[in-house]
């Protein structure tokens, strides 16, 4: 999506009146275009005025929120992932199963992220990452990728549909993290990115505990889906925990 097309759609975006691919493309552009970001921020303030009422929140709601601040979900058992058997090309049905499995695991996964953020993060980790700007070198690469013909924008969502990470992938196998809403992890943990290739999870790389700038190159395989897990620092050979986010390519 070029700048003029993007600029044209900022007002509908500020009202959340876009969905699907267009929304992903536009959000990816906004993440790297300072002018569009400013304009969108401005429009969001107008939308906020539009949505302002003088209602009071219902009685007891704060108490229910406060009760959940210390919530620690039960330890998570990774549900079994169903992948195609080794040696057989994955059938369409197998891929559907994989997607379903990803959807099922990410259900527990949103809870996992919250648990890690609340339970493990150190105070300094929370305070230390008060900026979320993309590194400037990465910003240029992402902008170039978004302008390259044949690029694909892949949005990884939690089971509740919350967009947790957006990647742009080029036909030559390069990929970049455009934006993410992944809560910083405690020291000793990392996010790890996986591609589902021929029905099996293949590690693409570790993303660090507070991903800001991620670049990868896939040599010869196009994954049918991307997924993110939380792993011990250094990463794992096979996904050891549940997917926190996933999305079809």
């Amino acid at each position: 999506m070029n700048h003029a097309d993007a600029h044209d759609l900022l007002a509908p975006l500020s009202l959340d009146a876009l969905d699907g691919e267009v929304r992903g493309e536009l959000e990816a552009h906004v993440a790297v275009c300072a002018q569009c970001q400013r304009e969108l921020d401005d429009l969001r303030e107008v939308a906020t005025a539009l949505g302002t009422t003088s209602l009071a929140a219902p009685e007891g709601l704060w108490e229910r929120i406060a009760a959940r601040l210390d919530e620690r979900p039960a330890p998570i058992e990774p549900p079994p992932l169903v992948f195609a058997r080794e040696g057989h090309p994955p059938s369409a049905r197998a891929l559907v199963r994989v997607r379903r499995a990803l959807a099922a695991v990410s259900l527990v996964a949103a809870a996992a992220v919250v648990a890690l953020a609340v339970g493990l993060a150190h105070e300094s980790a929370r305070v230390g990452s008060l900026t979320s700007a993309l590194a400037s070198a990465q910003r240029g690469a992402v902008a170039t990728a978004l302008a390259t013909p044949g690029h694909r924008v892949v949005t990884l969502t939690s089971s509740s549909g919350e967009g947790l990470a957006t990647f742009v992938m080029l036909p030559d196998g390069r990929g970049y993290l455009v934006r993410d809403a992944l809560a910083p992890l405690a020291a000793g943990r990392t996010y790890q990115l996986w591609g589902i290739v021929a029905g099996r999870p293949v590690s693409i790389g570790v993303m660090g505990r507070a991903p800001r700038s991620v670049t990868f190159t896939l040599a010869d395989a196009t994954p049918s889906a991307l997924g993110i897990t939380v792993e011990p620092r250094g990463g794992s050979l096979t996904p050891a925990t549940t997917m926190v986010a996933s999305g079809a390519v």
Binding site: D41, D42, T48, V114, V118, L130, S132, A183
Partner: peptide, 16 residues
């Protein structure tokens, strides 16, 4: 509460 760093005060109001 879980991700306060996501709010960037240079980009707009907390209300928005």
């Amino acid at each position: 509460w879980n991700a306060p760093e996501r709010f960037d005060p240079t980009r707009g109001s907390l209300r928005a």
